[in-house]
C-alpha cells in the first residue's frame, strides 16, 4: 500500500512535485524526440553556412599579446591517457612516437617528433573556447597542417582530414568508437592557423595539454582541438569513422562544425 503524506501541505507539495515531474518528463520526451531534433538540427547547417559566408578562407581568428596569456589555462577532457601504448611512449619521452599520415595521400608518412618539428611552423597566441563556456589564452607553436599535407600529397578525392588520438575516452562504447578523434574539412585543414602544436607558452607540450602533438584549429571550440594525435588520415567520407559524425563529441550530439 502506498503511504500518503499525512499533512495537507505535504500532500500539496507532493502533488505539485509530481505534476512538475510529469510536465518535465513530457517536455523532455518532446524535446529529445528524434523527429523534433531533426527539425531543430536545421540550425547547424545554417550556422555553418553563415559562418563560412561571413569569412574568407584566410580570415584569421583573433590573436593576442603574450601579456594576455592565461596563468590558469585549464586542461579538459583526457588529461593523462591510461592506454598502455601511450604510457609506454610517454615513459620513453616520446622517442618511439611516430605521426602516421595516410589515407588518400600520394606519399604516406611516418614522422618522428623531430621530423614534425622540422616542418614549416607557425606560432600564435590564441583564445581557446570550451563548449562549456570558459576561455583560456595560450601561445602555441606547431607544424602547419598545409605543410604536412603538402609533404604527403593529398589525392583529389580527399575531402576530410581525420585526427586519430591515443586516448580512450569512452571505454564502454562499441569497438572503434572508444578513442578520441576529430575531423576537419579541407577549408579548415588548410587554414593558415591550423597547426599541429608541440609547444605551449614556449615550452614542450605537457601531457595534460596533449603531448606530444595536438591540433589547433582556432576558429573552432575546444573539443575540435584534438590532443594526443597519433595519425592524420585523409578520407573522402566520414561515414565509416567512429559513429560517422566526424568526431568523438559530434558522435554524441555536438555539432561537427564547432564554430559557435
Amino acid at each position: 500500500m502506498i503511504t500518503l503524506p499525512s499533512s495537507r501541505r505535504g500532500w500539496l507539495k507532493a502533488a505539485g512535485a509530481s505534476v512538475l515531474g510529469m510536465v518535465l518528463a513530457g517536455c523532455d520526451r518532446i524535446a529529445e524526440n528524434p523527429k523534433v531534433l531533426g527539425v531543430i538540427d536545421a540550425a547547424e547547417g545554417l550556422n555553418r553556412r553563415a559562418q563560412r559566408l561571413l569569412a574568407s578562407r584566410r580570415t584569421l581568428a583573433p590573436e593576442f599579446s603574450r601579456a594576455s596569456i592565461s596563468r590558469d589555462f585549464r586542461a579538459n577532457g583526457t588529461t593523462n591517457p591510461a592506454d598502455d601504448d601511450y604510457r609506454a611512449l610517454a615513459e620513453d619521452g616520446f622517442a618511439g612516437w611516430r605521426l602516421v599520415v595516410d589515407g588518400l595521400v600520394d606519399h604516406p608518412l611516418s614522422l618522428s617528433l623531430d621530423q614534425v618539428r622540422a616542418l614549416p611552423a607557425r606560432t600564435q597566441v590564441t583564445r581557446h573556447d570550451c563548449v562549456e563556456g570558459w576561455s583560456g589564452i595560450a601561445e602555441w607553436k606547431g607544424a602547419r597542417m598545409t605543410a604536412l599535407l603538402a609533404a604527403a600529397g593529398l589525392k583529389p578525392t580527399a575531402r576530410y582530414i581525420v585526427l586519430h588520438c591515443a586516448d580512450t575516452f569512452d571505454a564502454g562504447a562499441p569497438e572503434g568508437q572508444r578513442k578520441y578523434y576529430e575531423s576537419l574539412d579541407l577549408v579548415d585543414a588548410l587554414h593558415p592557423q591550423t597547426i599541429l602544436a608541440y609547444e605551449m607558452n614556449g615550452e614542450t607540450l605537457a601531457i595534460p595539454h596533449g603531448a606530444p602533438l595536438r591540433l589547433r584549429a582556432e576558429k573552432h571550440l575546444g573539443y575540435k582541438q584534438a590532443k594526443y594525435v597519433m595519425r592524420v588520415e585523409a578520407v573522402d567520407s566520414l561515414d565509416h569513422i567512429g559513429a560517422g559524425k566526424g568526431g568523438f563529441w559530434p558522435d554524441r550530439g555536438y555539432e561537427r562544425y564547432a564554430g559557435i
Binding site: 518535465l24 518528463a25 517536455c27 523532455d28 524535446a31 529529445e32 531534433l37 527539425v39 531543430i40 538540427d41 536545421a42 540550425a43 547547424e44 550556422n47 563548449v131 562549456e132 563529441w249 554524441r252 550530439g253 555536438y254 555539432e255 559557435i260
Partner: peptide
C-alpha cells in the same frame, strides 16, 4: 532538457 544535457540545449538555443 531538464537533465544535464548540453548538446541538446545548444541545438535548441541555436535553432
Amino acid at each position: 532538457p531538464s537533465e544535464k544535457y548540453l548538446a541538446v540545449g545548444r541545438r535548441y538555443h541555436f535553432f
